[in-house]
């Protein structure tokens, strides 16, 4: 997505304000994608760093947030790839296992859902997070992930089916 590439000559988005307002929610978004707080913070930091480094400032706050969101999703993918590299390219799952502390705090019912989510494919997981946590429209998800709205719709539908299936399988064990 290149939503923020147009310089319309208006006042640029205040980056400090953007950072103060959206850093936490973006870290949470990254956390849901990489399942590691430190990695999530790094991903968001890098996303803001890229925005700071832009030669053309963004004028539209919505576009700026969209840019950051896309950057966070892409950065999360990179973080997961690096994590896989660290495991000699042979990960059993895309998402790291949760820490004991996390498991202790999260209710079991939530943990079951999150474990199931972790077993989905990367794109399915991203679509579900953006839809059911970020609350984005299909159009915004499509723009964030760089895919068509139809693909968003079909991916979300298949992802829910797959999630229900893996959760059922786990429950039957």
């Amino acid at each position: 997505m290149r939503a923020g590439s147009v310089d319309d000559g208006g006042p640029s988005v205040g980056l400090e304000e953007l950072y103060a307002t959206h850093r936490l929610s973006l870290v949470r978004l990254a956390l849901l994608l990489v399942d590691d707080v430190a990695a999530a913070e790094d991903v968001v930091h890098d996303a803001f760093a890229r925005m700071v480094a832009r030669r053309t400032p963004l004028r539209d706050p919505h576009a700026a947030l969209g840019y950051l969101r896309t950057s966070v999703v892409n950065g999360s993918r990179s973080a997961l790839r690096r994590r896989r590299t660290a495991r000699a390219y042979a990960p059993p799952l895309d998402v790291a296992p949760t820490s004991p502390e996390d498991s202790a705090v999260l209710a079991e019912e939530h943990r079951a859902v999150l474990d199931g989510l972790a077993r989905l494919g990367r794109r399915q997981r991203e679509v579900l997070v953006l839809r059911y946590w970020s609350g984005l429209s299909e159009a915004d998800i499509a723009a964030t992930l760089g895919i068509s709205r139809g693909t968003v719709k079909s991916t979300a539908s298949r992802a829910l089916v797959a999630l229900e299936r893996v959760m059922t399988q786990e429950a039957d064990r």
């Binding site: 850093r23 936490l24 705090v105 999260l106 939530h110 859902v113 059911y132």
Partner: peptide
């Protein structure tokens, strides 16, 4: 799903973030 995501995201609050300014 929405509740689980909210619960996981809610595990990180403002005080949990590393003090870092805008790059």
């Amino acid at each position: 799903l929405a509740a689980a995501l909210e619960a996981r995201a809610g595990q990180v609050g403002p005080d949990d973030l590393t003090p870092r300014g805008l790059p």
